[in-house]
C-alpha cells in the first residue's frame, strides 16, 4: 500500500491511508527524503490518523524519517496519533523523542507556518 504524498507550496503532506507493512514504511521514508530535495520542501506532515497500531518498528521508522528530513532541511510533524494508539505507545516505551507531534493536520500546518516565519525573521 503506497502512501500518497501531496505537495502544497513549501510543504509535503503524506497521509497514510491503510495499514502499512514494514516495507511500505521504509518506502515512505525514502520517498520523502527524495521529494524534499526535488521540491526543496521546508516542511513535511505525516498524517497517521487512520493508523491503528504503532509498534516499535513503525515508531522507529517515523523517528528516523523525521531526523533524516531535518538533516535535509525540512521540519517534520507527525499528526493524528489516536488516543488509544498513544496509550499503547507509552506502555511499549515508544515516545518519538525529538520528533514534533501535533493533534491534527490543521495544527501541523500552523506549526510549520510559524516555523517559516521564525526562519524568515532570523534571515533578515
Amino acid at each position: 500500500m503506497e502512501v500518497p504524498i501531496l505537495k502544497q507550496g513549501d510543504y509535503l503532506i503524506a497521509s497514510i491511508q491503510a495499514a502499512l507493512s514494514d516495507e511500505d514504511l521504509l518506502k515512505l521514508r525514502d520517498e520523502l527524503a527524495d521529494r524534499v530535495g526535488r521540491f526543496r520542501s521546508r516542511g513535511v506532515i505525516v498524517d497517521v490518523t487512520v493508523v491503528d497500531v504503532m509498534d516499535s518498528f513503525a515508531s522507529r521508522t517515523l523517528r528516523t524519517t523525521a531526523h533524516m528530513l531535518r538533516l535535509r532541511g525540512a521540519e517534520t510533524v507527525i499528526v493524528g496519533i489516536q488516543p488509544e494508539v498513544a496509550f499503547a505507545m507509552v506502555q511499549l516505551g515508544l515516545t518519538l523523542e525529538g520528533v514534533t507531534t501535533m493533534l491534527d493536520l490543521e495544527e501541523g500546518l500552523t506549526f510549520l507556518d510559524q516555523q517559516k516565519k521564525r526562519r524568515a525573521k532570523r534571515a533578515k
Binding site: V53, Q82, A88
Partner: peptide, 17 residues
C-alpha cells in the same frame, strides 16, 4: 473494545515481529 483492541493488536504486532 476501544483501547484494549489497540493494545492487543500492538502486542501481537511485536510478537509477530
Amino acid at each position: 473494545s476501544g483501547t484494549d483492541l489497540t493494545i492487543i493488536a500492538t502486542a501481537v504486532s511485536e510478537m509477530a515481529r
